[in-house]
């Protein structure tokens, strides 16, 4: 794939994604007018106002024209104008994206690192008590839905003990700056991050462990041991590296929903992020914003995929031969 015109397939994929992004939101019943202005009975929706809004949102133009306009604007780097937020989509996205990347990006890194190390250690100690304890813990915690785990953590640390913030990503208007601001952000980040790590580390751990178990029986491991390589070296250098391939794939998979996948955790902790933003955009049928979010998510996935292909080669040089 790296050799024969990978670029073309990616361009095609981007086009397919753009079309899906455009069409799927519009297939959903309801339109922005109804969603944004229809809900409040107090509003005076005169026919003139309605007409003006239809024009402002270009809802009166045929879909094909809207699609072309969308593509043309995209080409200029213009993501459009959010109906509900009354602001350029790019500005809205840029406001929320850092918080999402902070929370879910950090969670993904922690999960992958923790999962791989625990998985390798556990796999190498297969059947022994440490393995059993780790395995049961992973199985038990892995069964918690994120909103469940998050709520329990919030109830315990936030409500009962009062040591964790109840909501938000920082203390609003506390006049913090510099280090104290960083600490404040970290303090607010702790529980949501912990929740994500607790419920998401399981798959990484299990996958590493599973592959580790398979790998440890392979001939090259025996060879390594026969050579007299120390146990640790065999574990990490030989077997561990070999087990990385599926883990890297799994990490890539999680990244697919990295952008929007933390919806429930964001909701439990009132944490700003793309998950709740997408939810709000869907509820208000804010087409440009939905498109913008989906595009961001898609670009993130494609980029990560591309990087993964590179990492595959690094981790498992045989992959190149396989193509």
């Amino acid at each position: 794939m790296l050799r024969d015109r990978p670029f073309a397939t990616y361009v095609l994929a981007v086009f397919v994604i753009l079309s899906l992004n455009f069409i799927l939101p519009r297939l959903m019943p309801g339109d922005p007018l109804l969603a944004i202005y229809g809900e409040e009975a107090l509003l005076a929706m005169s026919p003139e106002l309605k007409e003006e809004l239809v024009r402002r949102f270009s809802l009166d133009r045929p879909l094909s024209a809207q699609f072309l306009a969308y593509l043309a604007a995209l080409f200029r780097g213009d993501l459009g104008h959010s109906y509900y937020f009354n602001a350029p989509v790019s500005r809205v996205l840029l406001g929320f994206l850092p918080w999402t990347l902070l929370l879910t990006g950090l969670a993904l890194c922690l999960c992958a690192a923790l999962g791989v190390v625990l998985g390798i250690e556990s796999g190498a100690r297969r059947g022994r008590p440490q393995d059993a304890v780790l395995l049961s813990a992973a199985l038990f915690l892995g069964g918690f839905p994120d909103f469940f785990a998050g709520t329990l953590l919030l109830l315990f640390f936030g409500v009962t003990l009062g040591v964790a913030p109840l909501a938000g990503a920082l203390t609003p208007y506390a006049g913090k700056a510099g280090l104290s601001l960083v600490l404040d952000v970290l303090h607010h980040l702790t529980l949501p991050l912990l929740t994500l790590v607790v419920v998401r580390v399981g798959p990484f751990y299990l996958l590493t462990r599973n592959t580790m178990v398979t790998t440890l029986g392979e001939a090259f491991i025996l060879t390594a041991r026969a050579k007299g390589c120390p146990d640790r070296t065999v574990r990490y250098r030989h077997a561990g590296r070999h087990s990385l391939l599926p883990v890297v794939t799994a990490a890539g998979l999680q990244y697919a929903h990295l952008i929007t996948g933390a919806l429930f955790v964001e909701m439990v902790f009132s944490y700003p992020g793309m998950g709740t933003l997408l939810y709000r955009a869907l509820l208000t049928r804010d087409y440009p914003l939905i498109q913008g979010i989906l595009l961001t998510a898609a670009l993130a996935v494609l980029t990560v995929n591309f990087l993964l292909e590179l990492v595959y080669v690094k981790v498992d040089p045989r992959v190149v031969r396989a193509r």
């Binding site: 203390t171 506390a174 600490l183 404040d184 952000v185 303090h187 607010h188 702790t190």
Partner: peptide
């Protein structure tokens, strides 16, 4: 994180 907690509670 622990430090952050202490700091944040103070303010």
């Amino acid at each position: 994180f622990a430090l952050a907690g202490c700091q944040a509670r103070k303010g």
